[in-house]
Write a protein that binds this DNA or RNA. Structure first.
Length: 580
RNA sequence: CGGGGUGUAGCGCAGCUUGGCUAGCGCGCCUGCUUUGGGAGCAGGAGGUCGAGAGUUCAAAUCUCUCCACCCCGACCA
């Protein structure tokens, strides 16, 4: 491709709407343009990257036994009603001319299960892995970061159907390896973390997360044993939380007028949130329950429910809190609390002389102590994990990091097959529901994740595998005949070798060409300038621009091709670390 | 949905507090000449419903009200 013919509107100035570096660079480099909040066009450069990512994930998913198909984005409401997901609030809904409701597909468990329940009857047809790469629609409450979280985005979604849990486990491990290999080939470091399954449901699930401060997910990672989990899921060991040996001071009620939040109370009492115990009143399966966590911690409702076998958990309303505690919201505490089961986070055990609500409006207790002032019915892991918490798998300590979720894989089990009556006839002659798995990879989000992870002050640094071009030739002075001839010669030779090359022969000053090449992040740069008259060109790599090499024109094509191959090889070697 | 912020030329911004003459600046864009190793110089030029609507006023980008869009934080997140 010749740059003079290529539509790549680069911007000199930073668009005001973009906060994240990746978002700014994608806009400035002419990769994407916004249509409305969370809805983006992929311009030629951006779409080239997407197509290269798609090629990689197709190859890897095919290698894992996947077969590509394409399902409709427009789906009848009845299908979603079968699995009780019609009410999911991020589902885009619309009516047709006959007043019938439809959804725009946010994910395709329903459609794929519908196909399979009609057309797969026997265990002999299993295992089955069907996938597609398609545009998804989700009415996100808050789109953000450009293509990081859009309302319309491109995703690979794969679905596996197996006879039993062992077979599902194999399908799952194959897809996990396929995803890991895909991300490695796209040149990014990632962590595989334990996660919550959300509305997709199912049992085991893991996320692929690119660690970067700009990420929207909070991740806890143990450096000792490689345990990694999303904060929404992460467990905390009951270790190091010994009862305090600090002498107990006399409990005392103090007036805290109007102080309801932790900040207000601790500010008023001139103490710190670490010195307060929050008492959160819930209704668990119809019974009141109090959850105690340290003032600067958050309750993790998912863990709370799971670890206490709660099926339905709801926060208590103001009336119920008044009835149970005798006080307004904000003044609940464990001391003297009757008829409410008290569950405390492990961490609370090591606290002494702390602050709690006094179950009396505008009053708190100070110097509260466990055992003397109240008793805990049960200790449990119920807080949102945070930095420096004890690792649940080893003796290590968890570290907090931020990450962008680029893939999420689930063992669904029979959640959808049972709800939709999707069964097969097994070897033993019995009708059984399919054991399903599903695997999602955010294709358009990869633009953001890779450019966030691989960049410098000048622009993006694409890996050669998904760069919009593998090589850019900077023809500095197109009017100089020796330069022009040399550039065109290398351009044509590289094209003949199947290398994706951009020839920048625009009538622009050299500075413009250098800036643009850096901004759009082509990995191999070939500078054709004054040295052309001596039969030489200059070669350098985007991430190591100072390190230029002069190459004889006759050898240039070989050298450049070798550099491209070497970079590709590195990425494949990285991918080969992952196996089933 | 709660909190904060922003809407003025393709992009980045000033002007608004204290209403007033033809709405400015930089970049980009068009034409010509010169220039060509890190976002060129000179000269000329095009480009605006000041987010929308209503109101106050002799007069509104500027004051008031309503609405809309977008961004950030939170909630949420398949």
């Amino acid at each position: 491709m010749r740059a003079s013919q290529l539509f790549f509107p680069t911007l000199r100035e930073i668009p005001a709407e973009a906060e994240l570096a990746s978002h700014r660079l994608l806009l400035r480099g002419g990769f994407i343009r916004k249509l409305s909040a969370g809805v983006y066009s992929y311009l030629p450069l951006g779409y080239k990257v997407i197509k290269k990512v798609e090629k990689i994930i197709r190859e890897e998913t095919d290698a894992a036994g996947g077969q590509e198909l394409l399902m409709p984005a427009l789906q009848p409401a009845e299908l979603w009603q079968e699995t009780n997901r019609w009410e999911v609030d991020t589902l885009f809904k619309l009516k047709d001319r006959a007043d019938r409701w439809h959804a725009l597909g946010m994910t395709h468990e329903e459609v794929i299960t519908d196909i399979v329940r009609h057309d797969v009857r026997s265990y002999r047809e299993l295992p089955l892995n069907l996938y597609q790469i398609q545009t998804k629609f989700r009415d996100e409450p808050r789109p953000r970061g450009g293509v990081i979280r859009g309302r319309e985005f491109i995703m690979l979604d794969s679905y596996t159907f197996d006879r039993n849990d062992e077979e599902l486990d194999l399908s799952y491990r194959k897809m996990r390896a396929a995803f890991a290999r895909s991300f490695a080939r796209c040149g990014i470091d990632f962590l595989i973390v334990e996660a919550e399954s959300g509305a997709i449901g199912g049992k085991d699930n893991q996320e692929f997360t690119v660690i970067t401060p700009a990420g929207e997910d909070s991740i806890l990672h143990c450096k000792e044993c490689d345990y990694a989990a999303n904060a929404e899921r992460c467990e905390v060991a009951d270790r190091g939380y010994e009862p305090s040996n600090e002498p107990a001071k006399p409990i005392q009620a103090v007036d805290t007028p109007g102080a309801k939040t932790v900040e207000q109370v601790t500010g008023f009492l001139k103490t710190k949130p670490e010195n307060l115990v929050k008492t959160l009143i819930y209704v668990a399966d119809g019974k009141p329950i109090a959850a105690l966590v340290r003032g600067d911690r958050e309750l993790n409702e998912a863990k709370f429910s799971r670890n206490l076998d709660i099926y339905k958990l709801e926060m208590a309303g103001p009336e119920l809190i008044l009835e149970l505690t005798g006080a307004e919201v904000g003044f609940s505490g464990p001391v003297g609390l009757k008829g409410v089961r008290i569950v405390a986070d492990y961490e609370v055990r090591s606290m002494a002389n702390f602050v709690t609500g006094a179950n009396k409006t505008d009053t708190h207790y100070v110097n509260v102590n466990i055992g003397r002032d109240f008793n805990v019915d049960e200790w449990a892991d119920i807080k949102v994990a945070s930095d420096q918490d004890p690792c649940p798998r080893c003796e290590g300590v968890l570290q907090a990091e931020r990450g962008i979720e680029v893939g999420h894989i689930f063992k669904l089990g029979t959640k959808y097959s049972e709800a939709m009556g999707a069964t097969f006839l097994d070897e033993d002659g019995k009708e059984k529901p399919f054991i399903m798995g599903c695997y999602g990879l955010g294709v358009s989000r990869m633009l953001a994740a890779v450019s966030e992870a691989r960049r410098d002050d000048d622009g993006i640094i694409w890996p050669v595998s998904i760069a919009p071009f593998e090589v850019v030739i900077l023809l500095l002075n197109p009017l100089d005949e020796a330069q022009a001839a040399a550039a065109v010669r290398i351009y044509e030779e590289l094209q003949n070798r199947g290398i994706d090359v951009l020839l920048d022969e625009r009538d622009e000053r050299s500075g413009v060409k250098f800036k643009d090449a850096d901004l759009i992040g082509i990995p191999v740069q070939v500078v054709v300038g004054r040295l052309a008259s001596e039969g030489k060109v200059e070669m350098r790599l985007r991430w190591d621009k100072q390190n230029k090499r002069e190459v004889a024109l006759n050898e240039a094509t070989d050298e450049i091709a070798a550099a491209v191959q070497a970079e590709k090889r590195k990425l494949l070697d990285e991918a080969d670390k992952y196996t089933v």
